[in-house]
Design a protein around this nucleic acid. Structure first.
Lengths: 256, 256
DNA sequence: CACAAAATCTCACATTATGAAAAAAGAGGT
DNA sequence: ACCTCTTTTTTCATAATGTGAGATTTTGTG
């Protein structure tokens, strides 16, 4: 689950390389990555990596475990993060809604956001039952089109953009259960007709989901709220009910 | 409330300059900052700023309001942020504790962390009464020594480091009510004796606070939990009770 | 519409980053 | 304790990269 591939850029090689390294470190997780790993994965010269990483550590954008010499994201990054995320951003605008949805249903709720060809989990509230999800916990990525929140966003983009994204993600769908380009297009059609996205345990056996995009009138969806629940708990009308709950919260969020 | 002054660094000028700009943008808040502002405040050449900012926007580390041409923190930053913050980091380890403290008392709780000569608010739960705080909301800074959480951390550093920090912050204390170097030293002494930090409305009239550092045995405090409450609500023994609540939660956090 | 201010682009220049290679510091293994 | 292999850190000649004054374009304003 890479943060993302490196996009092209405009005139600062060192920064491009820095971003490549930051992405790798961000994916390095708990244990962190060694210089050698980072050099290998980035394809950059070891000395260059070393210089960049050292500077980043100096600025606390990265932290280094001096014992094991591994790099992970640093304190300044966390600060930039809380400022970027809380702020007037989507995360803070959805905090209450997420908690309320969780409370009213007892099920796990997610806030997903669109990022290039992927969707990221920006926030979640765990339900009474622990359910496995494809994004894992907060910060996890999934190709756009995988999972209810993700499909919900994709479904309400305009067709050109959908095509573009689906084509860009083609090779990646195969690694998910029951997922093909056709299936994604089918799900999009269903979602548009129904108004909300539904997953009845197709992606992960036994795990269902409902998703609805957050979009201002006339704008493209940039985020979505979704539920994840056990198929065993499904009762007639849950999807409709959950869809309505999501709609209610999202209307309030968008209305602000 | 600057993120921080630029520390010296080791061998990548462009990155140093980038961090200067990122700090400025991070402080730019909701409205964001224009190229001209950023160039002026950073002291960098306009063209250089422009190039760096463009590249950062290309990588979505920054976002630019195309209408008003202002820069603010971008989506990738938010993602790095959630990964840095959630992760095994202090924020996720304190989430439950913060909520529980809030629930058991009804008062506002804060998670503060040490960052250079400052303390940052990394997380908070708002209490029943809206109380004004010096850090404002999440992401806000305050010099180490200002406020109960901040004093709690400072008090349990070793004396050399305390001195160093107090001296570094000397010029900044004057802008807070009733605060001088001597007062800070007094508060440190009180805190060490008492075991937890207390503010009885000295900094902001009518607003009291209790703070306790999060520290593993033998290590320096890197963070603190604190309460903020209205002086009007003070009853005999609240400070002791709140101190005990904080201790209980922190013991559990440290014990993991 | 004209004027001013800000943003963006250009390009000759040299400062800065580069990376191969050497040196140093760790990690094992016997 | 000693030697060997691996990983990290430093060095330094080279040139590629970033620099910034200024020209140009775009935007905002009276």
């Amino acid at each position: 689950m890479p943060v993302t591939a490196q996009p092209p850029s405009g005139g600062a090689q060192l920064l491009d390389r820095t971003v490549i390294l930051l992405d790798l470190v961000a994916d390095g997780g708990v244990e962190g990555l060694s210089l050698k790993d980072l050099a290998a994965r980035s394809g950059l010269n070891t000395a260059t990596c070393h210089r960049i990483l050292n500077t980043l550590v100096g600025h606390k954008l990265l932290a280094r475990d001096d014992k094991k010499r591994r790099y992970r994201l640093g304190a300044r990054m966390a600060i930039y993060g809380v400022r970027a995320a809380r702020g007037p951003g989507i995360i803070s605008r959805c905090e209450i809604a997420l908690s309320r949805l969780r409370r009213r249903t007892g099920d796990t709720t997610h806030l997903m956001a669109r990022f290039n060809h992927d969707s990221v989990c920006l926030d979640r509230r765990d339900g009474e039952c622990i359910v496995p999800t494809l994004t894992g916990s907060i910060g996890g990525f999934v190709p756009l089109g995988v999972g209810p929140g993700s499909i919900a966003m994709l479904a309400f983009l305009d067709e050109d953009e959908q095509d573009y994204i689906i084509r860009a993600n083609l090779g990646r769908y195969a690694s998910y259960r029951n997922l093909t380009e056709d299936k994604v297009r089918q799900l999009i059609a269903d979602t548009r007709r129904r108004g909300y996205a539904v997953d009845m345990g197709e992606l992960i056996p036994g795990i269902a989901g409902v998703g609805l995009p957050i979009m201002k009138p006339g704008e493209k969806p940039g985020a979505a709220l979704s539920f994840t629940l056990l198929c065993a708990k499904l009762t007639p009308g849950v999807f409709e009910r959950y869809g309505a709950l999501l709609k209610e919260e999202i209307d309030a969020i968008v209305g602000q």
